[in-house]
Design a protein around this nucleic acid. Structure first.
Lengths: 348, 348
DNA sequence: CTGAAAGCGCTTACAG
DNA sequence: CTGAAAGCGCTTACAG
């Protein structure tokens, strides 16, 4: 027994004014006498009036919503939910709503327009879209065709043969720099034989490897990489790296990993081999995902400021929406977080 | 230089048909000759036509969106983001969009209607709302006043003096049962002196304690609880519990914790005291948050099916929206996940 | 300060 | 199968 929603006309009628006046009090317009305003307000309260959002958005030409479109990834992964949080916090201040949508698509075949999420396909559904998660250029291109403002999370773009649209805006964090400073840190601690563990078939991990490689090369130190591919589970990848390390680089005193999960795998494997961390070997992670400092020993890692990535994406999107942004958004800095998993190498 | 969006009239004009016909092809209506359909479709494609969502929603009387309203909690906490994921997955199948909104409010003072999130305050903004996170009856009441369909995540409701509205729908998981089976499990392993570590000032943890207490009492075993309050960080809480345990219950052979983070704190503290897990003492967590099986030893814990909670909430909400649900949704079962942190107690 | 009227961009009976 | 017209519930110049 659902009763019809009240409209501005219902309120106007009861208050003995016009719908225009009701609309004016709804929109805080100053040109309403306080007497009528109070009366209208009281009637709205009593009758439980709720303005129709679709009608408002229609006449205003906008919905005040942006879309957080998470591609090919799980929100339950804290890396992405923290980005979402950053977006939401920023949008709250801008009085914008965030629509959350996940979308999985096959790599690099330009999706048919009708396969794109309805909310971005339709006009005035959202003011703009944030392309989060892992994306491919072909998809970005088809978003581009929609002529809707968008900002991309740049680090997880898998660049294929297709280039990104010229005017694409991407927020990136300094992936290479983070790996470089982690390497620096280990070297300053006295390490010389530092092993990188990761899957170089992934662009993002390769970028981390490059940060490591560059610093090692500069210092004239040996570059060593356990490149383990086709292992979707990073924890497993870490465990699998250990025998490789023992066999090929037995003198390793420190391990720099592609990410925290891999580091967890390494830690677990090391523990089984009764190799102590950090006494016998130092380990550094990457990402600073939650719970990683609950490990014992707590993991030294590279912090990626995920919420800042989110808020920067949102901020930049609003700029794009306002129109006329030329510049790319700033690159987000990373920093090393020193906890318990690293120490000076044992004297030989 | 933003060009005006095309409307159905623009398309109709170019195609030499009426707007009604354009609308019909847009809505897959069967009563359009395939010749006109093709022509209209082609023109829509060429001109990059995107139907206006607000206009559609206005005339249809609904937006096809529901709101995931996360109260007083962080999405970055995987417990909640997994619930969100469950919601999203379910909604995708129902062709509903999910609006994500977080909302913090003070405990138990009924919020003024105008302080409620705009998206739920307005009519036709969302079809219904999912009250996730931690909530208080006064807030639920003010949502109730909106006369909008809603479903509550029941376990984290802090029941104060106010009762919940009679017809409130809540999805709950079996918190007590999970603790009971964990206790059962430890007893079967041979443990007799089992300590519960938690903060009994929180209803949800007290429920877990009750599960433990009931089973212990049934078996005639001693109930022991390190009740540590006013410690917001559960990891710290776990660490702080250790001296208490050593002092008051030195014979403890197994610890049942209020949640996984607390268990991490216990594990870390135990390690510092050189007490081995599970050889010297067994530890059980609760929640089965991500990454917890990356610990060494991997944590035995009670799994809370978070995504299932989300999908059940969404499913039930759609029922409420359709109208005429009498029954409460099913209680979600928990299960114990056995990993490496428990063993038989050492012979005395 | 207030009202009558037009318009936002669709959809949907109603006729034909 | 197709079109003319009314209507969804607001907002906003335009007059007064």
């Amino acid at each position: 027994v659902k009763e019809r929603q009240k409209t501005v006309y219902d309120i106007a009628h009861k208050a003995g004014v016009s719908a225009a006046t009701v609309s004016r009090v709804l929109n805080q317009s100053s040109k309403v006498s306080s007497r009528t305003r109070e009366r209208v307000l009281a009637i709205m309260r009593d009758s439980g009036f709720r303005p129709n959002r679709n009608a408002r958005s229609l006449v205003r030409g906008g919905s005040g919503q942006i879309c957080f479109l998470l591609s090919n990834r799980d929100v339950a992964h804290s890396f992405h939910s923290r980005i979402l949080k950053g977006v939401e916090d920023f949008c709250k201040r801008q009085h914008q709503q965030v629509i959350f949508t996940s979308f999985d698509y096959p790599a690099d075949s330009e999706p048919a327009p009708e396969s794109l999420p309805l909310i971005v396909r339709e006009s005035s559904g959202v003011e703009g879209v944030l392309l989060a998660g892992t994306n491919y250029p072909a998809f970005v291109k088809s978003i581009e065709h929609l002529k809707i403002p968008y900002v991309l999370f740049g680090n997880n773009l898998v660049s294929g043969s297709l280039a990104l649209p010229r005017n694409a805006h991407a927020v990136c964090f300094d992936e290479q720099g983070g790996a470089a400073s982690a390497t620096q840190f280990l070297i300053e601690l006295g390490h010389r034989q530092i092993l990188f563990v990761g899957d170089l078939s992934k662009v993002w991990y390769r970028r981390r490897f490059e940060g490591y490689r560059t610093v090692m090369a500069e210092r004239g130190l040996p570059v060593a990489c356990a490149d383990i591919q086709d292992e979707p589970d990073c924890f497993q990848l870490g465990e699998r790296a250990l025998p490789v390390m023992v066999r090929e680089w037995p003198g390793t005193t420190a391990v720099l990993t592609q990410d925290d999960e891999t580091a967890c795998g390494i830690l677990s494997g090391l523990r089984k081999l009764r190799i102590r961390v950090p006494e016998d070997i130092s380990v550094v992670g990457y990402d600073d995902i939650a719970e990683v400092h609950y490990l014992s020993p707590a993991l030294t890692t590279v912090r990626v400021p995920k919420e800042q990535i989110g808020s920067t994406m949102a901020e930049h999107l609003f700029r794009v929406i306002e129109g006329g942004v030329r510049r790319q958004p700033p690159v987000i800095a990373t920093e090393i977080i020193i906890r318990e998993s690293c120490a000076r190498p044992r004297p030989a």
